[in-house]
Design a protein around this nucleic acid. Structure first.
Lengths: 224, 224
DNA sequence: TTCCGAACGTACTAGTTCGTACAGATCCAT
DNA sequence: ATGGATCTGTACGAACTAGTACGTTCGGAA
């Protein structure tokens, strides 16, 4: 739960300092996610922490520095989830479904992450590109997928013309959309995609979708 | 192309006035899409038009009023596309594929629309909800889909436990993601989803995905 | 104790941004 | 042509916002 402390480097910092930084990051995450980068107010963030604006600049240097720290923190979290997935002993199709459901579960329970990704895209990923950590470490999902897909293709149950990045895209698209476009979708179609009553069927649908697409051999490249 | 004039009500306006408004709307669309609502600068928009800031306030009243006009304009455009789709004479699966591809084509060629939808979601659709026009008229897609799905279920080729709104969600998710998350995706996975070289295969994949999911009877509710 | 640097608080500045007052131009009907 | 309505340009102000100068407190080492 409060694993946020592990996100902060603790090179000879006092306990109090670490807590202050964690406090700021937590509030800043909510503020940036809710209002966008330009819409977020440093004064507002400061007011909601138990410390002051001076501390934000003391620890993070600038509004942009704070935003970057927030971004790295939420990406670190999804990395942790990805590393925890066990699919070695599952059949390729069950593994695929498990991966899809794990992504769905993460995204639907981490609204701030999805909102920050949206915001970052509005700004053409200019901040994300500055973070070597994020760029270096966030391909875990692809490695896992590659393994599963290879196995499925070798077993002859998966089509062979769709690669891991494409599958990741399909899964992410479905899971992201639920959270990212929740409000316009609800306004127009009068259906809250995160309504708990729909969760089970939506969770099943993302698995159905990716498994059905990959096991559909109608578009296979190889000669039968 | 320059059908933007039709977006502006022309109750006894001079030709020049209509052009001025269209000019402002075009520039404002780009500015809001590129920088978000709070990040957009009224002065910057004014500077890029052939008129002045005074005119923005004369015609649109406020920054928010301008943003709302921009939003209605891009939604009106996708409505026009949806109304132009002919699928009456297609088989249910071909019709589904055609609808999916049309959505894909629209979204991938109207980046500003997708960006504005993202921005609107960051703000919890607060502006969109103010526009009765958008809320009233933007369910055309669903009506079309309902018809097709009914036909497919009746013919026994579609599963019967997924409704039109769900299918629309799947299609929109895939198509939106390509544009909305283009930059973070490219930064992390080094693949531009809008690369023309990939367009054909991605266009096929959205069709495969929705058709495979709907024709997959493994999860059917009805007894075989 | 004394000292030192890390951690913190207050009050302020410099610059930006939305919006407007006011003055002028243009068009059109009578 | 003339009065009035519709447009347009300029210059400015009030409010807000990121960032900082400067001083204080606290904890531990010598």
């Amino acid at each position: 739960m409060t694993d946020r402390l592990s996100d902060v480097r603790d090179n000879g910092m006092t306990e109090r300092a670490i807590r202050t930084q964690g406090d700021i990051l937590e509030v800043a995450t909510a503020e940036f996610a809710a209002n966008g980068y330009a819409g977020a107010r440093v004064d507002e963030i400061a007011a909601r922490t138990r410390t002051t604006k001076r501390m934000i600049y003391y620890y993070f240097g600038s509004k942009e520095g704070l935003y970057l720290a927030v971004l790295e923190r939420v990406y670190a979290q999804i990395r942790r989830v990805e590393r925890g997935i066990q699919i070695d002993e599952l059949s390729p199709d069950d593994a695929l479904r498990t991966l899809a459901e794990a992504t769905y579960d993460h995204h639907t329970t981490h609204e701030a992450f999805i909102q920050l990704v949206s915001i970052e895209n509005i700004h053409r990923a200019e901040h994300l590109r500055q973070s070597e950590t994020i760029l270096r470490e966030n391909v875990t999902a692809i490695t896992l997928l590659e393994e599963v897909i290879d196995r499925g293709v070798r077993d002859g149950i998966f089509r062979d013309d769709v690669d891991a990045v494409d599958v990741h895209m399909m899964i992410s698209a479905y899971a992201c959309f639920h959270v990212a476009n929740r409000h316009t979708f609800a306004a127009i179609f009068d259906r809250d995609m995160l309504d708990p009553a729909l969760q089970e069927s939506h969770r099943r649908l993302i698995g159905d979708m990716v498994v059905a697409t990959m096991t559909d051999r109608r578009n296979d490249r190889r000669v039968p």
